[in-house]
Nucleic acid binder design. Structure first.
Lengths: 345, 345
DNA sequence: ATGAAAGCGCTAACAT
DNA sequence: ATGTTAGCGCTTTCAT
């Protein structure tokens, strides 16, 4: 329970050698005779010496640490991404410092700034809100940085990135509903200014157009309480009826949480999914398998996105050149979507 | 995009003063005349100076960092706890380094060791497996450490702790089922050697005894594939039928994930919950509200456990005395439990 | 009000 | 094979 930590010099004093000899012995420098090397190592153990990584970092200017910014750690999507990050970070001997942005640019920048001060070796930002105008101040200090699913309207080309193809995902979702015979297909989105919502809406529109289906304004429901950003579940729950009265028989939801909210609303209204209404989600979080019926959804390879981004960052740290990557989502068909039949006589 | 970082000395050179003057100016030391102070600050801004926290730490021997060990970040329970930790850490200017143990003592110790080397100011360990025998090596280096829901059979008294009252929770669950008229009540547990499983089983037994109900061995199902620790959901799904054939009408599940697995199995078997069978979970994760029927469950205040533990750690870091805390879980009644009626004629 | 110098714990180039 | 010295970037006496 020694309060003061033991240093390399303490060991040197006890061993009657210089502190550099201790340093060498501990690092298996071949110059040190095997005998004293073992003696010193033994002594270090007895004195329960713990090397000071701070001092090492100051010298090497490497902290073996990467910073990760997510909007919330309790969000199952990011939790999964972070899991992927953590796996490859750990296996490469890197520690992960976690910060949350809560979808707020100010907090995001503060987090990144903090990482810069701490001299992390690299930074990963999920759902970044950083656009071109902010990049200047942030790139002054050259820390390898990768954006995962950047949400900025005008994303800077300065940072590297890995992202999901939102438009493709949306098209897969809508094409799936079309293939089931649905012709009145709605989009249930979220009202933050996120790029992914825009892109999914676009993909939805493109798919409708390609299928020769009409585009009705009332078939698109977006929760526009920008500020109080309610939970995705309650967004889905509240907005469902709007689409229902517009007469859709199939709905593509912004994500699984929104779909779950819609599902809940259906249960309250006595609407049977998928008999009366087909629902398609996005993300493929674990939860989507456990609701009743299980959600048909567009899966993002969350774990892979994390591990891939981390691998990219590793390359970047080693001055390798890396290429930005757009990953393709894929449809997983489950119980919430079914062939359209006109139940309403 | 300057590769080399600018230091306090660079600023000093440009300002024609000594580096200590710069240091003082930047830290608003009143000795520096307001005029030069502003000049230096302005210069620092222009040169986009970012203070080196590593150098500061070496000097102050404070890293403003705490280490957190969880079994998995993708587990909704720990995600919520970490969220609570992160909230109070951030508001106190502390960064959080995250590590995972995967319920493995070796990995847990490695993570803690790593934290020691990095000289974190404090450590939080969730689901710790550390027992008395390991404490010696770990307490040599005096870093304030708090265990959250320690799972060790013989928990060391050396560390501080915050934990949920598992036995109480189990009793609440069983008493709830008893109050609904159930007399054949099972326990569906997990087969790792965790303390919480033991305690919940104990609580279950105590509650049965107090209710004057018999204890039947076949009413307790525990997945004993210790090694390949399958997911909790599949544990619940696989073990349900065993309890069903034993004739129980109500089941207390180790946690919500196990309950979800049981629920899934019921759907496959055409058993109606809660009409044919009542299910009670544990934890109160978000998911428990979204399955059909929503789970009656014993809630742990996950967010609070995290923020409370972090608050405790903060006190510990400031040499205040803290008291270990056992939190009380509470019953939340939802759709998965109902009054017993003999449906089977 | 400012500069010079010491030192946090470590590694490595430079002696010997 | 081992010791001496310098220095990583910063804060903080101690002089002036």
């Amino acid at each position: 329970m020694s309060k003061r930590k033991v240093s390399i010099e303490d060991i040197a004093r006890r061993a009657g050698v210089s502190h550099s000899t201790v340093s060498r012995a501990l690092r298996d420098n071949p110059l040190i005779s095997p005998k004293v090397r073992e003696e010193i190592k033994q002594l270090a153990r007895e004195m329960s010496y713990v090397p000071n990584a701070i001092a090492q970092s100051l010298l090497s200017s490497r902290t073996n640490t990467i910073g990760v910014v997510v909007t919330s750690i309790a969000d199952p999507f990011f939790a999964e991404v972070v899991e992927g990050i953590e796996q490859v970070a750990t296996s490469s001997g890197l520690s992960v410092v976690l910060s949350t942005s809560h979808r707020d640019l100010k907090q995001e920048i503060a987090a990144i700034d903090n990482f810069h001060r701490r001299r992390v070796d690299g930074i990963l930002v999920a759902d970044s809100r950083i656009s071109k105008q902010h990049t200047k101040q942030l790139t002054q200090i050259a820390v390898p940085t990768i954006l995962i699913n950047s949400q900025a309207e005008d994303q800077s080309e300065i940072f590297h990135s890995v992202a999901i193809d939102d438009r493709l995902g949306a098209r897969l979702a809508v094409e799936h509903l079309v293939s089931l015979g649905h012709t009145s297909i709605g989009y249930l989105g979220v009202g933050d200014r996120s790029r992914s919502n825009q892109q999914r809406l676009e993909g939805y529109r493109i798919a409708l157009a390609e299928a020769g289906l009409p585009q009705i304004d009332d078939w698109v429901a977006i929760n526009d309480q920008d500020k109080t950003r309610t939970s995705d579940v309650s967004t889905g729950r509240k907005m469902l009826s709007k689409l229902l009265t517009a007469g859709v028989t199939g709905i593509f939801c912004y994500n699984d949480m929104v779909a779950v909210g819609a599902l809940l609303a259906c249960q309250e209204l006595g609407i049977s999914v998928p008999r009366d209404l087909s629902l398609v989600g996005f993300d493929g979080i674990a939860l989507s398998r456990y609701v009743t019926p299980p959600l048909t959804t567009i899966c993002q390879p969350m774990l892979e996105m994390g591990s891939f981004a981390m691998q990219m960052l590793l390359d970047l740290v080693q001055d390798k050149t890396v290429e930005n990557r757009v990953l393709s989502p894929f449809l997983v068909q489950r119980g919430s979507s079914a062939v359209f039949r006109n139940n309403h006589k």
